[in-house]
Design a protein around this nucleic acid. Structure first.
Lengths: 112, 112
DNA sequence: CTCCCTGCGTTTTGTTTTGGAACTTATGAC
DNA sequence: GTCATAAGTTCCAAAACAAAACGCAGGGAG
């Protein structure tokens, strides 16, 4: 089965994952919850390539998770802010944050 | 940045996603929370290819989210059960389930 | 005016991952 | 022997991805 067919799945978890269940998307949301909104902010913070970032942002806007907003008219600049729909995933990220803190300690290679 | 470098990230969310943040892995956990444990059960329920499933299961075992358990010795058969670490992600899936129900209705194409 | 800078993407070029389907191995049933 | 079951593994083409360069629209400096 292709990933793209998941949005029609009978299971609500699968349908959710069809939006946020790929590599990177939840990292964009993390940054959004931290107050970031600009393309360059997401790019730098998450470390993903601009290519992928542009695609994911477009998708999140299409799905109504983020809203593309004109924040400067000359020159024209857009940023991305959470919708109510997007806000409602925040608790899931909180759980992942706590889980990561508890179960995924940073293994730093013995360094001077 | 490559996805594989995420496990060393300063951010606990990113480290969590380095384990469960790819396509399919959370769908395996969904099935595990529903009581499934066998390879064929995961394969059929999630619709992912056996190839990918095998790789994801191996990774989840390595990370201590699932445990590979011998459930039949002749012929040798293994299944996969949640560890306590794995159980602790259940609330996140619950949120995604509710979010999917609320925000991702199944669009069925006008059908007779 | 000309040149450089910022911010938001798009294009290009290889590499990696994925999807689909067939194959393997071990054992029990008929 | 032949078929069926369960848990993977292997192969190849197709899709996704990473990295870096390019495009474009306004400023601002000189």
């Amino acid at each position: 089965m292709k990933w793209s067919e998941l949005s029609e799945n009978w299971c609500p978890v699968a349908r959710t994952l069809s939006v946020v269940g790929d590599r990177w998307t939840l990292l964009i949301l993390r940054d959004a919850y931290l107050g970031k909104s600009k393309f360059e902010e997401f790019a730098e913070s998450s470390g993903m390539t601009r290519h992928i970032l542009a695609e994911r942002l477009k998708r999140l806007v299409e799905e109504g998770v983020l809203e593309r907003r004109l924040y400067s008219s000359a020159p024209k600049r857009y940023d991305y802010v959470l919708t109510e729909k997007g806000e409602e995933l925040r608790p899931a990220l909180k759980i992942m944050k706590d889980w990561g803190k508890k179960h995924m300690p940073v293994r730093r290679e013995a360094k001077a």
